[in-house]
Design a binder for these strands. Structure first.
Length: 465
RNA sequence: GGCGCGGUACCCAAGCGGCUAAGGGAGAGGUCUGCAAAACCUCGAUUCGUCGGUUCGAGUCCGACCCGCGCCUCCA
């Protein structure tokens, strides 16, 4: 059984997709005005693990992630740079896809862009006007919260209790109610706009997701993800619009990922603790897989405190898994198998699936993996593990990696002749008990990224980079 | 002010009424080794923010309090 904590109900509930065996998933994507930061990627990695786990459980997942390529920030950015909006956003869209690959985040099935779905949004806005859920004001169209009885059900916000900020108050004169939000914004001088039957202008942010999710997933779908900060107002507004327009439930399960903070503080450019993936990988030589491990190793509903110490610990945990695979791969095991291994793997798999199935309890899932590693390592130590066991165990680890995606793809094992000769030279030196030369050669190989290990079955090596 | 999250060993982090409080990292000692690496073994919280309460029994439920953080405005 799989259960998720549904923000809408405020509790864990068994997950049952609308259509058996199929999951329709929508996740809020980037606004492409800048490079995505590690906080963004925390959410995307969480969503990736969710998707991979659903697939692991044999669900067929249709995943849609929107790309917001028109909003205040992208418009401002393009203007500042003096380039057309599309040129400006193209750079960041490209960077975004590059980053996804670096973190081994599987591509969505659809990446609809706001600018390419204006007619879909206009249709809904027109419908909301027709049905009386929206009204026009000074060339813009607003959604009337007063006519949406369920408003607040996701965020548990009581509108009467809301603190009115200066910004909201200042807008009040042009709306019927301070909390009404724009579906369609009137054109402004020097800003891009689209002509449509509801007049010239550009879409509000919220309508984008309502229109594009419905287009690719239908008016009601299974799971909608995003960061906690999106609960209000973004997702609340999506629900209001979509349910008003379609007259049926919008989303069954809402999953929200908590924030990432850095050294105990909110990440902010002004604090100097703001990191993009590119910073870390290029300027700090961070292993993207260690970052991915760190991002996924804290439960998605808990605040993740990013520190470089935590990153090192993630790297160490990862090294333990990789070293284990290396052991399985590089030892000369006797042919055959022992029955014990099959049990160990079955137990680990069960525990892994149970953990992940319980609202993605990643800690339990990782424990299952590490306990298995420990038990098999003992068998190796006792020289009980056989060749078939080793093969099966390695295959098992790789199967879990279908969900975790933290192991490198199979690495090139051939090494340059020059290094090969050094390894042999060192072996000769060791035979002659010339340890000084042997250690010197080891250091040289280490500098070249090769770690040598002397075993009773001879020398072996790991490629570190 | 409203809504919400969290405080478990040096660090990260499970456990949410009952076996000796998972797992990872770091640390100490040991086995193996020319040395090292990896692996293995041993050690490490009488204790789960504080104070009360419920219970035969509580990190685990209830109440109060203290501390940290997030959202309420574009934001993953």
């Amino acid at each position: 059984m799989i259960q998720f904590f549904n923000t809408l109900s405020g509790q864990k509930e068994p997950f049952t997709p609308i259509e058996p065996g199929k999951v329709k998933l929508y996740t809020c994507g980037p606004t492409v005005y800048d490079h995505a930061h590690i906080g963004n990627f925390r959410a995307y990695v969480f969503e990736d693990v969710l998707k991979r786990f659903l697939r692991f459980q044999d669900f067929q997942v249709t995943h849609v992630m929107n790309i917001t390529d028109v909003d205040d920030k992208t418009i401002r950015g393009a203007k500042t740079k003096g380039v057309p909006l599309a040129d400006y956003t193209a750079e960041y869209i490209g960077a975004f896809f590059d980053d996804l690959k670096v973190l081994r985040i599987e591509p969505a099935d659809h990446y609809p862009r706001a600018t390419e779905h204006i007619p879909d949004m206009v249709r809904i806005i027109q419908g909301l006007l027709d049905k009386g859920f929206a009204y026009r004001k000074d060339g813009a169209v607003y959604f009337s919260i007063a006519r949406s009885p369920g408003y607040g059900k996701l965020s548990k916000i009581d509108l009467a209790e809301l603190r009115t900020t200066e910004r909201v108050e200042s807008d009040e004169y042009e709306k019927e109610s301070a909390r009404d939000f724009a579906l369609w914004k009137a054109p402004k001088e020097g800003e891009p706009f689209w002509d449509s039957e509801i007049g010239p202008g550009r879409p509000g942010w919220h309508i984008e997701c309502s229109a594009m999710s419905a287009k690719y997933l239908g008016p009601t779908f299974d799971i909608h993800c995003g960061g906690v900060d999106n609960i209000f107002p973004h997702h609340e507004n999506e629900i209001a619009q979509s349910e008003a327009y379609w007259g049926r439930p919008f989303v069954n399960t809402w999953l929200h990922c908590h924030h990432l903070i850095v050294d105990g503080e909110k990440m902010a450019k002004s604090k100097g603790n703001f990191f993009t993936l590119r910073d870390l990988v290029k300027n700090r030589q961070v292993d993207p897989m260690a970052l991915r491990y760190l991002l996924l190793s804290t439960h998605y509903r808990k605040v993740l405190n990013f520190t470089f110490e935590a990153l090192e610990q993630a790297q160490a945990a990862l090294r333990r898994i990789r070293d284990f695979l290396y052991e399985l791969d590089s030892r000369p095991f006797q042919a055959g198998e022992v029955p014990e291994v099959r049990n160990i793997l079955t137990e680990a798999r069960t525990k892994f699936v149970e953990g992940m199935g319980d609202d993605l309890n990643i800690s339990l899932a990782l424990t299952a993996l590490f306990e298995m590693i420990k038990r098999v390592n003992v068998l190796i130590r006792e020289e009980k593990l056989r060749a078939d066991d080793a093969r099966e165990t390695a295959a098992f680890v790789h199967s879990l990696d279908l969900v975790l995606a933290v192991l490198l793809p199979q690495r090139e094992t051939t090494i340059p002749d020059e290094l090969m000769r050094k390894i042999q030279a060192r072996e000769l030196a060791r035979k002659d008990r010339n340890f000084k030369l042997a250690d010197q050669l080891r250091r040289e190989l280490d500098d070249a990224g090769l770690v040598l290990e002397d075993t009773k079955d001879g020398v072996r090596w790991k490629v570190l980079r």
